[in-house]
Design a protein around this nucleic acid. Sequence first.
DNA 1: ATCCAGGATGTAT
DNA 2: ATACATCATGGA
Length: 303
Amino acid sequence: MDTGAIDIGDLRGGFDLQATVESGQTYGWRRADGRMYEAVAAKGGSAWYHTVVPASLAPADEPAVVRARQVDGRIEWEATTDAEPLLVYLLRLDDDLDAIQRATPDDPLLQSAFDAYRGMRLVRDPPFVSLISFICSAQMRVGRIYGMQVALAREFGEKVAFDGESYHAFPTAEQLAAATEAELRELSLGYRAPYVAESATLVAEGVADPAAARGLPYEDAREHLKRFVGVGDKVADCVLLFSLGYLEAVPLDTWIRSAIAEHYPDCERGSYTETSRAIRAAFGGEYAGYAQTYVFHHLRNGE
DNA sequence: ATCCAGGATGTAT
DNA sequence: ATACATCATGGA
């Protein structure tokens, strides 16, 4: 077992592990006490979390189990491999949150959201995992989206042994494409079941690849992702923001739309494309997606 | 019971 | 291009 610690004292803008992995942007982390989205982590916010990094992102091309907790100004980790570069990448420890907050408009809603969850970072989820989890997110609460991803891993993902315990990787496109729509409906995916099955098949057969959107201009990348079944503008924006590093993407979900109605009524332009352009400008442009995620988390926690 | 949740799709206009 | 019905499921 590899172990280590990352000093977060010199991270610009700090770090908040719980806010980062329990804010509804990633569904790939599990809390050791099994109480994700149910209660605040144990005193000191030092709960252990773990994830299984897909083989495509891990050394030796095999799934890597990574456990991490935040305690006393550092991130302690235990893993099947050297987890430090993985944690830096997945949790965007390389972002300068102070600079990002300074680049965000000095506006009461935005700044109070940043101040309320200081240290929360965006994530870089694996593209296929992000694609499927946000296809599942349609008209669904975060707690149930999370439950669906746990069920998909349990039923279709590779088992990985670590430290005497058994973990499940998220299924690969091939593994998920092999599942039937009926099997997916049994996991309570509802009408999303065929979307997941068809999108997984597109990836497994090499017809389309969510990672291929990388490098395209933002709005072109969004159109590229909409080729998948069950992916419209909003889900595409989530994948761009939470997986592919488009920090300007602002997913227009119900929470953000209500924030627009209440705080930025002149940004409502009648179409997703135009409203998106307006709210991205109002949120500061380059890092608008960071502002979006802080506002989402802030509003969802009852302001 | 009715409404709603990190919406998307097919169809009619 | 835009408007509308429809699509499952479970919690409030």
